[in-house]
Design a binder for these strands. Structure first.
Lengths: 119, 119
DNA sequence: CATTATACCGAATCTTTCTTCGGTTATTGT
DNA sequence: ACAATAACCGAAGAAAGATTCGGTATAATG
């Protein structure tokens, strides 16, 4: 976790949302957990492009914000297992909407990106 | 605009979405334009916390992606004016959803942030 | 009981993004 | 014509975020 130098504006809802489930991998992590991939190792394997460390950090953050829960009731796993909290589940519809939007416009965006290494 | 060193995964809808309207200020810019704040100066004043430069850059990016349009038909303004494109308008419901989510959970998040300068 | 796997953590480094600052060009208003 | 304002750009550097690497502790396995 990082020390901020510039104050945040938590009065903007969009800012709060991107604070909580923005970032490069948090959505993927939530998606994984929602699919029942509960243990850190499994999440890391599922999102193999991401570094192990960032998944650890973001799991900790999601836990901190109460978006996910760490369960002791280890049915299958050996140790840690995460599930979505009630609050966490309220994020899912937003994620699907974003995913849907992105997928239906990805061709268009890819076209624009072609031959362009900048953004 | 910045030169990327790591390739992007445009096959993930969420990634595409955050590529197009993620970032620190793009949502605010879209919100401003949606409210009829059309000219760059006015947008800068509306989002006074953001630097002028980043608004210029992100306006250019939104224009590049076809999310906004630059209009020559200057009714009121002296020079540039931006409006949401048809594609741009499809983003609005997602923004409201995010805003709504953020606002209804901001108290909770603020509480967690208290006395903590990290995230 | 030694080995292995898992869950974490800290620090250094690197990439991406944002900000600051100093420009140029063109339009507006007097 | 001349200042003032607006739009836009480039480059340097700061800040945020991600990655890499090397740890410790503890639980599972043979």
């Amino acid at each position: 976790m990082y020390e901020r130098k510039i104050e945040e504006n938590l009065d903007c809802g969009i800012y709060v949302a991107s604070r909580v489930f923005g970032g490069k991998w948090k959505c993927c992590i939530l998606d994984a957990i929602n699919r029942g991939i509960a243990r850190p190792v499994d999440i890391c394997n599922y999102i193999s492009e991401a570094s192990k460390r960032v998944i650890e950090i973001q799991l900790a953050e999601l836990l901190f914000f109460g978006i996910i829960e760490k369960c002791a009731e280890d049915t299958y796993p050996k140790k840690s297992a995460y599930t979505l909290s009630e609050v966490g589940k309220t994020i899912l519809p937003i994620l699907s909407q974003m995913d849907e939007w992105g997928l239906s416009h990805s061709g268009f965006i890819k076209e624009r990106q072609k031959g362009i290494q900048v953004s």
